[in-house]
Amino acid sequence: MSIVIDRKRCTGCGKCVLVCPGGLMKQEKDGTAVMKYPKDCWGCASCIKECKFGAIALYLGTELGGRGGKMTVSEKGSFLIWRVKKTDGTIEEIAVDKRESNQY
């Protein structure tokens, strides 16, 4: 389980580094975030929610049957927009209203 960081989108705000429940990330000298301990990632997605620039994506390791899809999330009003970009370039989105409870 781990994340991939798009260095071009990362602004060096450092929020992901602060929030990671394992303290697994760090900032390089130029401020860019890097995953220091990729094998220790729990896959909780805290960092991708924290990133306002869509610079961090969650993906499934091959041991978990991962197919290379990258998941990001952004906020729009009361919605969390979860987006998966597959390797063939197709994009699928699911919007979850934060004001709505789970049905299950």
Binding site: G43, L60, G69, M71, W82, I94, V96, N102
Partner: peptide, 13 residues
């Protein structure tokens, strides 16, 4: 997505 997003990612992928 509200508790274990990797499962949804797996379904979507």
């Amino acid at each position: 997505l509200n508790m274990a997003p990797s499962q949804t990612l797996k379904w979507m992928e």
